[in-house]
Design a protein around this nucleic acid. Structure first.
Lengths: 205, 205
DNA sequence: CAGGAAATTGACGCAACGTCATTATTGTGC
DNA sequence: GCACAATAATGACGTTGCGTCAATTTCCTG
C-alpha cells in the first residue's frame, strides 16, 4: 500500500493517537457548525466520533481547548500563506495586496461548511493561542522588514500590525456577509487604505 | 426624603426591578473580572448579590445574556460620545481624531477594574447586539456624511466603517497592553492611518 | 385593609461534567 | 511467538451547575 505518504508516525500507537485527535477536531468542526459553539457539548463532539466519552479527556481538557486547537490549526495553515505573500511580493504594495487576498481567500474557504450562522460557531473564548501569536509576529516582521528597507515609513510597527489585523478581520467579516464575496475588491480596499489612507482606497463604482 | 433625584420609576416594584437588574450586572462585572468569563457561573454571579438563584432567571436567560447586556450598556453609553465627537468636529480630521480618542478613553475607563487579565474577562467575540449595531450605524453615518459633503472620497462606506472599527479595536487592545496607555498617541496613529495611510501615521519617535 | 397581581425564593430533577478503576491494545525483551 | 509492561480506551459514577416551579413574600389597587 502507499502508506509511504504518511511516513511520520511509525508505530500504531502514534498513528491512532494522531487519528483520534483529528477525528475529534473534525467532529468538533461539524458540531460547532451545526449546533453553534455555545449549545455544543463535549458529549455532542465525542458522539460524532467512534470514541468513548472518557477518551475525549485524553486529548483535550475542555470544549474551549478543542476550539483553541481548531483556531491554532487554522493559524498554522495560514501562516505559510502569509509568508509566501511576503516572499513573492516585488514591492510593499504587492505584499499588502497579496497578504490581504490570502487572508480573505482563507476565511472564505474556512467558512464554507454548511450549518448555523458564522457568529454562532464562534466561541466565547480568547484566541491568543501560540499559533495566533505567530501569525501576529509574521505580520509584524513583514511590516518591519518593509520599514527597515525604506519601503514604508518608520511608524509604530506594533500598532501598524494591529491595525492591519483589525482591518483584515472586520473588512473580512463584512465581505463574507455580502453575496458573492469579492476577495479582490476587499483586498484592494484594505491595501489601498493602509498605503494611502482614504485617497488610496478604491472609489465606489 | 430626597427620592426626587431618581424620579423616573415611581412604584417600589419598578424601582427594585431596576435595582436588581443593576445589582446583577454589577456583580457579573466583578465576577467576570475576578474569575474570568469562562470560569464564571450563574451561581457565582447571583452569590454576588443578595438575591436567590431563581431570581436571576427573572432578569436574564443565561450568563451569555448577562454579558450581552453589559456590552449593550457599554455601547449605549459610548454612542452619545461618538455623536458628540461628530457634532463638535470642525473638520473630518478633527472628527476622526475625536472619535478615536473618545473610544480609547472609553475602553481605558471600562477596563479599570482590578482582577484577571482583560482577555479572560470577556469573550473575544463579535457581539452583534442592538446597541452594538447602533454604534456601527453611527460610525457609518458619520463617515457617509463626510463623504456626502465632499470632506472624504467616495469610498465604500460599509468597508470603511468596518475598517475604522477594526483599527479601533485592535489598536485599542494594543494600547491597553502598554503601560501607561497613551490615548492621544493611539488616536493620532489611527486617524492618521485612515486619512493618509502610512504617510499620515505618526513617525515613531 | 382585603384581595389579587407580581416578584422572590430555594429545593428539585436533569444534563453535562470530569474522574478513575477496569479492560483492551500495543510495544518490548527473551 | 510469548509473557509482561506500558499505554490508551472505556463507560459508570459522583459532582456540579443548570433552569424550573410550587410555595411564599411583597407590593399595588380599590
Amino acid at each position: 500500500m502507499s502508506d509511504a505518504a504518511i511516513a511520520d508516525p511509525v508505530g500504531k500507537r502514534e498513528r491512532t493517537k494522531v487519528a483520534n485527535r483529528q477525528a475529534i477536531l473534525a467532529a468538533a468542526r461539524r458540531v460547532f457548525a451545526q449546533l453553534g459553539y455555545e449549545a455544543a457539548t463535549v458529549r455532542d463532539i465525542i458522539r460524532g466520533t467512534d470514541l468513548a466519552s472518557g477518551t475525549f479527556y485524553n486529548y483535550f481538557r475542555s470544549k474551549e481547548e478543542v476550539f483553541e486547537a481548531l483556531a491554532d490549526d487554522g493559524a498554522r495553515r495560514f501562516k505559510p500563506l502569509l509568508r509566501a505573500a511576503r516572499e513573492q511580493a516585488r514591492s510593499f504594495t504587492e505584499y499588502l495586496n497579496g497578504a490581504f487576498r490570502a487572508y480573505f481567500q482563507f476565511i472564505v474557504e474556512d467558512n464554507a461548511l454548511e450549518g448555523r450562522p458564522i457568529e454562532e460557531r464562534r466561541p466565547h473564548v480568547r484566541l491568543d493561542t501560540p499559533e495566533m501569536m505567530a501569525v501576529y509576529q509574521e505580520v509584524r516582521q513583514g511590516l518591519e522588514a518593509a520599514i527597515a528597507r525604506g519601503a514604508a515609513p518608520r511608524v509604530d510597527a506594533d500598532y501598524l500590525a494591529c491595525a492591519c489585523i483589525g482591518i483584515a478581520q472586520e473588512v473580512g467579516s463584512a465581505m463574507l456577509r455580502r453575496a458573492p464575496a469579492d476577495i479582490v475588491a476587499a483586498a484592494e480596499f484594505a491595501a489601498g487604505l493602509i498605503l494611502k489612507g482614504l485617497d488610496g482606497a478604491p472609489r465606489k463604482s
